[in-house]
Design a protein around this nucleic acid. Structure first.
Length: 495
RNA sequence: GGCUCUAUCGUCUAGAGGCCUAGGACGCCGCCCUCUCACGGCGGAAACAGCGGUUCGAAUCCGCUUAGGGCUACCA
């Protein structure tokens, strides 16, 4: 007895689409939740659409999201091969079986004849269906067409009356009139099986118990059910998850912005955030929790909690989620994520090792960042003396005659401190402010802008502690000097 | 066109006949916290597509309409 077996079966036509990623996630969670097996299978029967490197990109996207498969490319398995192009003998056997059972027949119509027939029917206001030209050919007629050198395809003989009900775990019973279906092709003239045939053969051969896939396949379900029936296979449980639509309610495509998982990675989105966001697109955890780690997702996942209606994709919430993960995940983890970004920005050397001070800085910076590139900017003044000055900030808090001296006084006091801690720094700032008869903010704000170039950021005293005494003092003095020499110097480098 | 799925705030959604003067989250707007920003807290604006039924009672059930999606290939 096999337990739950599910599969994700993308065709390698390019990148991993977020809709596909969500389907994969649901399959993965379903398998894990039920202690089952998650299979990755590549549907590459259309060689003209198969793209070089696409399988690798899809695998990498899945791995990045933390979706791992138990059988499939790169890992193997007992039900292989996992590429349809390598399973041709299996299809040939199934095709031969279909012919033997009398449920399939060769059709010699050319694509041109078919197109003409379709057009004729459409003009007559009817739904285009295969007219059954070759359905009842005698063996002489077949032989004659073979002799003419006509190439044959194989069609499935579909009953012309009655109805077929497909049970869907998400939608319930879906009923189709057989009269609306026609004898569809199961083997192309190049010998390859068509999608609707190959999926069934593979799902059966791989003992798939639950077919969880996108809603775009719902209309294929009756055809596939017919193939199952024709071949005498047992039907799996179907579950069609709603599609993800673009904000204009059309199918999500490139012109709507990012649609590939890898693009989100390149935008500085963490896999935890994308995975979490994708889960919530069409799935309700049941309580009011929204931020869920993989373990919680596995524990909670259930097909009955998958929604029926399509979700419109809106990345505002994704960005918010990303900011939450940025500040919640272990700081070491965040460092591993930003590290390549910091290196690319020239703020971190490839051989450089992080220390406690770096982690403190990261801790302060990450609370304010929504994405990895934002985090890089929030880290810039910690890692480099070359940080941009915000023009408005300079004008507002630095460009005043009394500021230079105050900055120097702050620097003096800082140098006198026995220990450089946030607490001590705050004490001395407040004391100095008292002595000067000023509100503390008149010292705090100029210091912040001088040391970071910006008016926004972490609590100043923690900021200074994380920055370190030497850089703090050096920056205060440098800025004071520049203010004295020429105030406009500072406002040149604006952000 | 035919077949089919879907329909609650701008978006993701809760809601499986009375608990709904429809709840939460993102976003937006105020206020609080405060050295700024962010976080956090508090509050606000914001929805049951329409019309008919069924019922004592409907966001919830049924029908129709409307709108959107999918399929309708020798693509997957």
């Amino acid at each position: 007895m096999v337990g739950v077996r599910v599969r994700f079966a993308p065709s390698p036509t390019g990148y991993l689409h977020i809709g596909g990623a969500r389907t994969a996630l649901f399959n993965f969670l379903f398998a894990r939740h039920n202690g089952g097996t998650f299979v990755l299978r590549i549907e590459d029967t259309d060689e003209t659409r198969t793209l070089e490197g696409a399988v690798e990109r899809i695998c990498e996207g899945l791995r990045w999201l933390g979706i791992t498969w138990d059988e499939g490319p790169q890992v193997g398995g007992r039900y292989g091969p996992y590429f349809q192009t390598q399973r041709t003998e299996i299809y040939q056997r199934a095709l031969a079986e279909a012919v033997d059972r009398g449920v399939a027949y060769p059709c010699y119509c050319t694509p041109e004849e078919l197109a003409a027939s379709r057009e004729r029917q459409q003009r007559a206001g009817r739904a285009p269906r295969y007219e059954g030209t070759c359905r009842n050919l005698t063996s002489e007629q077949r032989a004659q067409r073979e002799a003419e050198g006509r190439k044959a395809v194989l069609r499935l003989k579909v009953p012309q009356e009655g109805a077929l009900e497909v049970e869907d775990a998400i939608r319930g019973k879906v009923r189709f009139e057989l009269a609306t279906l026609d004898d569809f092709i199961i083997q192309k003239s190049n010998g390859m099986p068509t999608y609707n045939f190959a999926v069934v053969v593979d799902d059966h051969a791989m003992e798939i118990t639950h077919v969880i896939r996108g809603e775009e396949h719902l209309s294929n379900a009756p055809k596939q059910a017919l193939v199952y029936r024709a071949l005498g296979y047992e039907l799996p449980i179907f579950a069609h998850v709603p599609m993800i639509l673009a904000p204009d309610r059309t199918k999500l495509s490139k012109r709507h912005g990012a649609t590939a998982v890898e693009e989100y990675r390149e935008m500085g989105i963490l896999p935890e955030a994308l995975r979490n966001y994708l889960l919530l697109l069409g799935f309700t955890p049941g309580d009011e929790r929204e931020l869920l780690d993989l373990e919680e997702m596995v524990a909670l996942f259930d097909l009955s909690k998958v929604n029926k209606n399509p979700a419109i994709y809106d990345d505002k919430k994704l960005v918010w989620m990303n900011s939450r993960y940025l500040s919640r995940l272990p700081v070491e983890r965040i460092f591993a994520e930003v590290r390549p970004w910091l290196e690319a920005a020239g703020l971190w050397a490839p051989d450089q090792q992080p220390d406690q001070q770096l982690f403190r800085q990261l801790d302060l910076a990450r609370e304010r960042a929504h994405t990895l590139p934002e985090l890089v900017e929030a880290m810039r003044y910690f890692l480099s003396d070359d940080y941009p000055f915000n023009e408005k900030g300079v004008r507002k808090v630095l460009a005043h005659p009394e500021v230079a001296e105050r900055l120097e006084q702050c620097a003096d006091r800082i140098e006198m401190l026995d220990v450089f801690t946030a607490e001590k720094i705050e004490q001395t700032y407040r004391q100095l402010a008292d002595e000067l008869g000023l509100p503390a903010r008149d010292l705090i704000h100029p210091t912040r802008v001088a040391v970071t170039g910006t008016t926004v950021g972490p609590s100043l005293f923690h900021l200074l502690e994380a920055l370190g005494r030497e850089p703090t003092v050096a920056r205060l003095r440098r800025v004071a000097q520049q203010l004295r020499a020429q105030p406009s110097l500072l406002s040149k480098s604006d952000t």
